[in-house]
Design a protein around this nucleic acid. Structure first.
Lengths: 340, 340
DNA sequence: TTGAAAGCGGTACCAC
DNA sequence: GTGGTACCGCTTTCAA
């Protein structure tokens, strides 16, 4: 106490040297014991002394020092979504994290809100992650990928709707969703189809490909496709609904179930019969869609399992030369209920 | 190419020494230039040469090396939710991250799925975060807090419903939500009140305090409170609904709007009049709750702004002695619509 | 079985 | 103005 006045207030962080001193051994021995290094034999009494000393001091190894020495990390960086992607992605994320941890990776989500693609890539690269798995919330550019790889990332994997030069692209083709929805509507005999474009920022990476797929299916089926901007609030929905009759549409694909439910209710308030006058279909197959009347038709999405993706990450990390290219990470199929 | 055979395959990560070599200066100079160190004057030509060299090599500083030298990081670690907390928390999270970045912190979410409180605290401590802000998804124990502080964390802030010894607890009192809901039902003349307990794992940290608040309000208002386990799927809801008449309840507080919508629909299918025979109230004021008929009554929650919390984090980091204790981070008020 | 020491990448003090 | 260099905490080779 008299030695270091500030000790109690801000006692310094214990290091392996402190553990060594307390146990009466060298730092090397501490390292061997705490890492269970198998290539070296340490006597049981020594091990016990070291462990007790570490315990007593509350020693926690310094990850930065360790990885600095090792020359690499086991960190997998996931750019964090800046918005809610819904329960589907959330479950996928959890699964991925869990599976990666089992493979002994440290999983970290890096919030990149307000950074553009290249700034973000630099920020991530400073942490020297061994892998980056992007769902496409922040635009990953070819330069960004180059930055990451140059900084030691073995795997840069993009699940974005669009391929990114240099990255291992596991194309999760969102356009399939829009295509499915519109094809379904056409099969139900509709020809004038509105497609909702969410007004919320950050959703473009999903909504654009979905719209593109819708347009493609519309062209193939000789249907008219009409883009319909819509914000996720009641005012926007009722504004759109009140102008509905003038649009001459007999069906609408509403981006996802949330938007579909919102719009369907607004159309009903306007006295428009669903599906008689207008068919409605959403996407993502939310439970709540089954609770409205009529029950909401939707596009069900089968996501790749997190476990599978974790294995892919691990494989690419171990052999970066392996230029695999996996498609069909996502299956999409229309589910007909009552609204279409 | 002939110099280093593996160059293209795995050229090594450029360091400040490489930049120095290319620019023909010392590592010290590189550091001064790239950090704009104001205490030292570097000539403009030198600065340019250094910057160009860094650019050419694609140099990105190594965060671990930097923080090792500095003795501290600017990392704020947020234990990542293992489940979806809904749009309310999501927005709060985004705001917090954005505000912390503006204060020059690096925000990182650490996925802790499958780790218990103390394991998780150790894992976090290895990264030497300067602050940890927990929403209570993973149990923060007093030992965990101690581990973090000993490892150099200046601020350990808990937004959990329960206070945690040693941490700066910013109590976000979820019990207020349950209490509001039940008080509202009692005011509407109900006396036999069911309270839904979600079956989903990971929600206990929220559902238990909400139930506790409900019980408290029930006792105060001389109402009977009946716990009702319910999983988030249609089977579970219709099973509960089919046994409803035997339960003798005239109202139900259904944890949140999602569960409320699910249960309300199941009750309607069973021919039970809402709110005539049974009043229903949810919580979180989701937009979708207004789309069902009758419109769902709910408890609206006013969250603390992320900006405010970021400022609190910053203050505690700068002055860890500041033992502030803020309450009322969350306001809750019942919103009467048609279902109650 | 254990210890001494080099070195990972960056920073900052001190000398020139 | 710029360079030399010690040091942050940890791992690992080599020697004892």
């Amino acid at each position: 106490m008299s030695q270091t006045p500030k000790q109690s207030a801000e006692r310094s962080v214990p290091t392996s040297a402190d553990v060594a001193r307390l146990a009466g051994v060298s730092r090397a021995t501490v390292s061997y014991v705490l890492n269970n290094t198998s290539s070296v034999r340490i006597s049981e009494p020594t091990r016990r002394r070291v462990r007790e000393a570490a315990e007593e001091l509350g020693y926690v190894p310094h990850a930065a020092a360790r990885s600095l020495r090792a020359g690499h990390t086991r960190m997998v960086l996931l750019p964090a979504a800046t918005f809610s992607l819904g329960p589907l992605f959330h479950e996928f994320f959890n699964e991925l994290q869990w599976a990666l941890r089992r493979l002994d990776y440290t999983v970290v989500q890096y919030g990149s809100l307000g950074l553009d693609g290249d700034e973000a890539a630099r920020a991530w690269a400073e942490l020297r992650p061994v892998a980056v798995v992007s769902l496409g919330e922040v635009g990953l550019t070819p330069q960004g990928v180059e930055t990451l790889k140059r900084s030691g990332a073995k795997a840069v994997i993009s699940l974005a709707p669009r391929r990114v030069e240099g990255a291992h692209s596991l194309v999760m083709d969102q356009s399939e969703v829009g295509s499915c929805a519109v094809t379904h509507l056409i099969q139900r005999g509709r020809r004038d189809i509105g497609v909702v474009i969410p007004g919320e920022a950050g959703l473009e990476h999903f909504s654009e490909p979905r719209f593109e797929g819708a347009r493609r299916a519309g062209a193939a089926g000789r249907a008219r496709i009409e883009p319909l901007p819509l914000s996720y609030d009641e005012e926007s929905a009722s504004a759109l609904a009140s102008s509905w009759r003038g649009l001459g549409l007999d069906a609408v694909y509403a981006y996802n179930d949330d938007y579909a439910m919102l719009l369907m209710r607004a159309l009903q308030e306007e006295g428009i019969d669903i599906p008689g006058q207008t068919a409605v279909i959403g996407a993502d197959d939310l439970l709540l869609g089954r609770l409205l009347r009529p029950r909401l038709s939707t596009v069900h999405i089968d996501m790749v399992t997190g476990r599978l993706l974790a294995e892919i990450v691990d494989r690419v990390v171990r052999d970066p030369g392996d230029h695999l290219e996996i498609r069909d990470l996502m299956g999409a199929r229309a589910v007909h209920r009552e609204s279409s």
